[in-house]
């Protein structure tokens, strides 16, 4: 049973994601200062805004970088994924800058946030999306999405009001979803299950 750390950095609701990971057979460790050497995978959750998230996550900057360098799978969810990039139009503050690019406000004439169920369009292979297909539905609550410098890291897209934006990011052992897999029914459980499977017991 892999041990997966869920980063607690003062944002959002950890309940659903920790429950989902436990249901999928992971041992969940709520991570703050300690426990970093004991985990086989890291989830960076996030509901909230970039500026606050950036401030709160800065204390973990090196730990996260070290973890990624050592090959441990890391999954960022929503704001947790946006924080892997350099900066955001949402507000001041530095992201972790592990991925090159900025987070942009969705340029649509429709209402924001984009809330609800939208479809995925899978554009590249990625082990995180094993068994997930174009047309599968996922649940969103967001007004921003990343614009990676390297388009190759985008493995799936979604569309809102005519705009396509990155839905899933894969770059080596680094993964991210702009939607909430823990709220996305069977498709979300499949994705989290794939992540748990990638976290091999050390």
């Amino acid at each position: 049973m892999p041990r997966i750390g869920v980063l607690t950095y003062g944002v959002g609701n950890l309940f659903s994601v920790t429950r989902a990971l436990s249901r999928l057979g992971a041992e969940v460790l709520l991570l703050d200062e300690s426990g970093w050497t004991e985990i086989d995978g890291l989830v960076v959750p996030g509901v909230g805004n970039f500026e606050e998230g950036s401030r709160n996550i800065s204390a973990h900057r090196e730990r996260i970088a070290d973890l990624i360098a050592s090959g441990v799978p890391v999954l960022g969810i929503c704001l947790g994924m946006q924080l892997l990039f350099e900066e955001s139009e949402e507000g001041p503050g530095r992201g972790l800058g592990i991925l090159k690019g900025r987070v942009l406000r969705l340029r649509v004439s429709a209402k924001l946030p984009h809330i609800g169920w939208s479809r995925l369009r899978v554009v590249r292979d990625c082990e995180l999306l094993e068994g997930v297909n174009s047309g599968d539905w996922v649940y969103y609550v967001h007004s921003y999405a990343p614009s990676p410098e390297d388009p190759e890291v985008v493995v799936a897209l979604s569309e809102y009001a005519g705009l396509e934006f990155p839905a899933v990011i894969c770059s080596g052992n680094l993964y991210g979803t702009q939607f909430h897999p823990e709220k996305s029914g069977r498709t979300g459980m499949r994705i989290l299950g794939n992540f748990v499977a990638l976290c091999v017991r050390r």
Partner: peptide, 30 residues
Amino acid sequence: VASELDIPFTVGGGIRTLEDAEALLRNGAD
């Protein structure tokens, strides 16, 4: 209820204060 769900969950009824809302959001309500 929330522990068994993998979809968004809305909870209401008798919420009188911000603290009431917080308690629900901490315990699985979205």
